[in-house]
Design a protein around this nucleic acid. Structure first.
Lengths: 332, 332
DNA sequence: ATGAAAGCGCTAACAG
DNA sequence: CTGTTAGCGCTTTCAT
């Protein structure tokens, strides 16, 4: 049988309250007793049962991070940031991957709601997250990366996706391109929408008509990117540049272009998203739009912990976009 | 206030026992009562407090995965595999990153021991894990990737690291290299040791003397890899090939080589480890040794769940290595 | 088939 | 300063 606080108390000749107090430093316990208790604890390698403590205190000191995918470096960077901050602040982190499955996301939130965690950081599967309003009143939730303003009482930390789309497109236009295709990862999410808005704005400011046929879905995978590039280029012969919204897709696109005998950036220029270290040594090195995933993660956890501690109003945070210029866009 | 089982019971006009039984299907409850209870539950969006359930049942249906780093694709792949399997089997997953900090690892295991989780999957920081024997008797633990046979009662799932080192070295030798440098990620872990043993064996079988100065530590980072390549090449002028044990380091090495004006594979041939998708589109495409991280993860969780369910003997698993040949080794 | 009640291990009034 | 005790919300015997 596992040793409990009661056992420690008995062997030390004190009450459980005393043991609890020396463990938590909740009250002053005089020296002879204190060290006796500590000694017994040491002797048995006693660790308080956190399950009981959780029930009693109505708090678990654990937070959940639920992401919609788990393969690209951007999401990994966010997780890294969240994990780091959580650990630093004494929280454990529960990780859930919804795999872009909306129903599973709902089930997960519902499960998490049962006091298993003190708060949730969520990168939702889609824009349809009105259901969260059933929870935000009584469970701290912060939205990361993707969001929807219909959700009340949940702060968000995101990146400037409009700028991502706008700057990428503008840069390509400055290189003389007028028919720019875009391969996006997922439909119906704020990130994609923001970038597309930026794309359209840049087009408009340069007097280039917007053509919906220049958009293609790439499913955030290497294969999806390759396939999207192929279909896009086949049906839209005039395209000379690509804006690709995810690093895995970019890899697929470059492979496919190579296969098709197309040179980057001579035949097709491209700008990717999310700067993984390999981008510098690919052929050609990839120009990328970047948003800081780790910072999004750490900021998100900071927001969450404020929310957990009951701090009234926590504002939304939007981190700036930047561009790292290499050769795939035509620069050099 | 949050609604509890008691509230549901009262409103449905039954006892808490009955509510519990309809929720868990533990006993037959006759129809009128059953649907009444279900209806009230629905009405209030009631979810049982898992904190209380955990205390009562002495089980949390959550497992922990503790890794020693969080940046390379191999570790991410393992996490992905574990998370997937855990979810599939109805477990939640606690993720902890020890950041190669041995003391923190111990603290973590100790914390986790307090019934917070039903079992632990651990990729340890070092070979010094004898302390785990204090825990394995009463807490299911499975070791992944890295291990040490001093730990009893903990099954392991690893890759054939000897083969990784042996095959990489042999391949390089077949390309005519006799002075092969190796950049390893971390000292004092079984993975590094296994690969180094394979390296030595391949050398020996080909009558090439082993030279410890051909080994350099690269810290599993891009910068570490770059720096290691520089020092190694500077002090060992005869080196014509490199075996690099981590994908991040490989990126650093290739960048550095480029900077030094050295051609791959003409001046320096290389074989890396861990096949991230970008390896196919780098200049040159990278030949890699590979071990299946996701499979290691899923197999590890399967072992863990067997252990949790009390299945007597769970054996160790070693997954085979393979090589994906591209151009950096000199092939083509 | 259903309910009463004990108790999982801990914290935190409260009393002394 | 220290001990007694009442729960936290649930599951699970044991009666009925």
């Amino acid at each position: 049988m596992k040793v409990t606080m009661k056992d420690i108390a008995k062997e030390a000749g004190v009450s459980v309250a005393t043991v609890s107090h020396v463990i938590n430093g909740t009250k002053n316990i005089t020296e002879p007793k204190r060290s006796k208790v500590l000694e017994i604890i040491e002797k048995y390698h006693y660790v308080p049962n956190s399950t009981a403590k959780n029930l009693r205190t109505q708090s678990t000191k654990t937070a959940a991070m639920v992401v919609s995918s788990f393969t690209d470096s951007f999401v990994n960077g966010m997780i890294y940031g969240v994990e780091q901050k959580a650990r630093e602040m004494g929280y454990s982190l529960l990780l859930v991957n919804t795999n872009e499955d909306e129903k599973y996301e709902k089930k997960t939130i519902n499960l998490l709601y049962s006091k298993m965690v003190d708060g949730i950081i969520l990168s939702p599967t889609s824009n349809d997250i009105g259901y969260l309003n059933d929870f935000t009143e009584s469970m701290p939730i912060v939205l990361v990366n993707r969001y929807n303003p219909v959700v009340k009482n949940a702060p968000r930390v995101t990146g400037d996706n409009f700028r991502v789309g706008y700057d990428a497109t503008t840069h390509l236009i400055q290189h003389g391109h007028r028919n720019i295709g875009v391969i996006y990862a997922v439909p119906n999410v704020s990130t994609t929408e923001g970038r597309l808005n930026g794309y359209r704005r840049a087009l408009k400011e340069n007097g280039i008509p917007y053509d919906e046929d220049h958009l293609e879905l790439g499913y955030a995978t290497v294969e999806g990117g390759a396939k999207a590039a192929e279909t896009l280029l086949k049906k839209e012969k005039d395209i000379t540049a690509l804006f690709i919204q995810n690093d895995l897709m970019t890899i697929g696109v470059i492979s496919k272009l190579k296969e098709l005998g197309l040179e980057v950036p001579e035949d097709i220029a491209l700008i990717g998203f999310g700067d993984s270290p390999s981008a510098a040594i690919t052929a050609p090195p990839i120009t990328n739009m970047v948003l800081p995933p780790e910072e999004i993660g750490t900021k998100a956890f900071e927001s969450l912990s404020k929310l957990i501690d009951g701090e009234a109003h926590v504002e939304n945070i939007e981190l700036p976009a930047s561009m790292v210029v290499r050769k795939s866009c035509g620069c050099e």
